[in-house]
Amino acid sequence: MIVRLRELASRWTEAVPVLAVLLLAVTWGRDLAGVWVGLVTLVLALAVLAAVHHAEVVAHRVGEPLGSLVLAVAVTIIEVALIVTLMLDGGDKSATLARDTVFAAVMITCNGIMGLSLLAASLRHRVAVFNPEGTGAALATVATIATLSLVLPTFTTSKPGPEFSTSQLTFAALASLVLYGLFVATQTVRHRSYFLPINRSGEVIDAASADDTAERPSNRAAYTSLTMLTLALVGVVGLAKGVSPTIESGVEAAGMPHAVVGVIIALLVLLPETIAALRAARRDRVQISLNLALGSAMASIGLTIPAVAVASIWLSGPLVLGLSATHMVLLALTVVVGTLTVVPGRATPLQGGVHLVLLAAYLVLAVNP
């Protein structure tokens, strides 16, 4: 019976990504309404669950921290494609889309995913434990890239408004790529042990061999899951773009700021990582959760800023990257609180709750600035 249930689960997780891509091909470029919106939303939700399943298969095969990196980079690359596509199609009102979506991703990952993971792990195991060396390095990199890309444009004077000049944008793009590349090399080569889960005694756990009792997938199964993961993520982001006009119409009808569109897009795109991080936290693999959270934040900025810098060559309107004063306060508070959370290497439900309150404050101010 258990074997048959596993076979059934395997079949639907392989069928849904294909269905999502086919539905994307049918609905691409069309105005959706009524039943189509409901169908797209349903398939999108199923594709998210399928993506999480295949990401975990790949992660189990390659081990940590490569497993977290695969999901974070895959999601972010497709997210960047979505942002650039919407910017090219959206006219002047898309000038702030990259900033809004990237900042939303930072707040959701550094406060939402991180807070939920710490809360889930500490409630189930009393205290959430993780490696402060690797997590601290990731947080420092996120803070640096976010400040260079999203805060400095508000204060530069080469161009009016919160915009970079061409040379400044080029520097920010190159700095983001360099820092992200250095981080990936640190995480996967030179100091891989800093990003592996640890036990209550502080000893490193090799997640590839010690995570649960399940047998490691074969190479064939891993490659199949990697293909299905790619299809699922293409489906998730593409279908999210398909329902984005409905989202924009709903936001405008509700009288909310256009920045809320970026928040909703980020929430949809980051859903697979959120579910994967929560499942890892419940297994007391908090380091995997934090790798996903901070790695996604870093990849979101480190890949989006260079992409929009290149896309700005074809964009006719302005590219607004500078944050408002309110958002800069929230970013600064997130970095300070994150630092105090990371330094001890242990967290209680209080730390998780603080991060979630920061996310709630961001969401409230996004809707009602």
Rank of each mutant, 00 (worst) to 15 (best):
L229D: 07
V261K: 04
I205W: 07
L139Y: 09
A33S: 15
V57A: 12
T230E: 08
A293Q: 08
G238L: 10
V35M: 02
Q187T: 14
V335Q: 04
A222V: 03
L5G: 01
T109F: 14
R99P: 00
T170C: 11
D212T: 12
E252D: 15
G302Y: 08
L86E: 06
E7G: 00
G136R: 02
L330Y: 01
A72S: 13
N368H: 10
L331F: 15
A98L: 05
Y362V: 02
K241E: 15
L119P: 04
I301T: 12
L226T: 08
T109L: 14
M256C: 04
S201T: 13
G202V: 08
V243S: 07
S316Q: 12
V320D: 02
D100R: 00
T334H: 08
R200M: 11
T96D: 11
A307G: 08
V58G: 05
V57K: 06
N368F: 14
A254E: 06
L196R: 11
S149C: 15
L363Y: 07
A137E: 14
P162L: 04
S10F: 06
I301L: 13
E133G: 03
V16C: 00
D100I: 03
I78A: 00
T144L: 15
P162D: 01
V204R: 12
E56F: 08
F130N: 03
F164Q: 05
A222F: 10
V18C: 01
L24G: 09
I265H: 08
